[in-house]
Design a protein around this nucleic acid. Sequence first.
DNA 1: CAAATATAAAAGTATTACTATCATATTATA
DNA 2: TATAATATGATAGTAATACTTTTATATTTG
Lengths: 228, 228
Amino acid sequence: MDLLMKSLKIGVNEKLYIKDPESSTLGKNIVEQSILMIDEMGFDHFTFKKLGVKINSNESSIYRYFENKHKLLLYLATWYWGWVEYRMVFATNGISDPVKKLEKAVEILTKNVEEDSSITHVNEVVLNRLVINEYSKSYLVKEVNQENKDGYFVVYKRLVNRLSDMISAVDEKYPYPISLASNVLEGSLHQYFLKEHFPKLTNCNETVTPTKFFTDLIFRTLNQKIDG
Amino acid sequence: MDLLMKSLKIGVNEKLYIKDPESSTLGKNIVEQSILMIDEMGFDHFTFKKLGVKINSNESSIYRYFENKHKLLLYLATWYWGWVEYRMVFATNGISDPVKKLEKAVEILTKNVEEDSSITHVNEVVLNRLVINEYSKSYLVKEVNQENKDGYFVVYKRLVNRLSDMISAVDEKYPYPISLASNVLEGSLHQYFLKEHFPKLTNCNETVTPTKFFTDLIFRTLNQKIDG
DNA sequence: CAAATATAAAAGTATTACTATCATATTATA
DNA sequence: TATAATATGATAGTAATACTTTTATATTTG
């Protein structure tokens, strides 16, 4: 899969950038280092000026790639979900048993990213942490309806729908497949956050993973027995 | 209950304000109008300067009540969860059947606030909407660990634990009661958000409420039959 | 009525979030 | 290889934000 990833370019909505960051060294640098910086200092404290200093480039040059830091966050999030989607589709592709297929999908969607593919300039482990801490901020804005119309969330929505379809394939009678799917995706990020900052608000810890919790939740809900 | 509410003061951590806003007309005005303003323009566009203009007061006077708008958000959120907790405890108090008790709790915790009590300066309907749109921003910050130590989230944590206990009372064998509880509380806000802005990512609509979805989810998970 | 306290008004600072201009470096093309 | 086109860098500038400080004026309390 690593080799495949090498030649794969995650498709991101063109409105999210002014100039495609994949098209130049500076652009790739902006993406690579912004991920590390946002992870380190948090999105709220992150500025293009600080990023400019870090990458030895100029604030104004960064503005030629991204309109503002909000668009950059949307770009990074879209990249992340595109990458997750790719892995999920790839991993579940050959599975014909709906239960096993759903199980695998939930595993990919909820498990912690533990190693960086080292193929691209994007560090997926750090990006995963960034998404846990910052993703909500990309849509909890007054402009969300317009941005949704502009297609900034298509990848994420497609992912929720894929999961929803797999849920329905296991239990076509279950009445809330989309809500369950969106709940799992968003809830998984939340459980990771709680595990890190509010350990008393989650049963997830070193041994119990969010994957375990959500796999159990889904199959109890769909009234299916699962091993393990 | 309305009469009870009248004499009830929601207890908010004293570190969240410089001067207690309940102690003066100006303070109450700050709380009342900030709720309306944040709801209207979104937390990101809200500033103390704008609020000052709206309440015909001075920016510097607002700073004598709240250190910054982040603390104000924490204050409003704490007030909200305190109010929800009060209603939940009150509504479930006399119920001895664990299943019915849990059902009632979930109803209070996940149902839309539809009418303002009109007793206090706080408009609960608007505050509920504010919490749906902005609550995550109060904890998705780099300073979360320190703020947690300072006790800014005690009310919310207590609420999650109450729900968790009720879950365990229905099924003591269920291994993830706290995760289920935190998932319901956070997920409920999320489903309302989706219903409003991403209707294709939820099954909730005019007839299906988040309450229905989560009640169904919980009792399927705990392997209990529920009517309705 | 005096003293204490609360609020208002105004000004000031540092940072943020950009935009604009011009210079220089790099790359593409004739 | 010269020239043109494009990308990047450096500098400066603007408006808004997020405060802090000071001083004046109300309002409350003893």
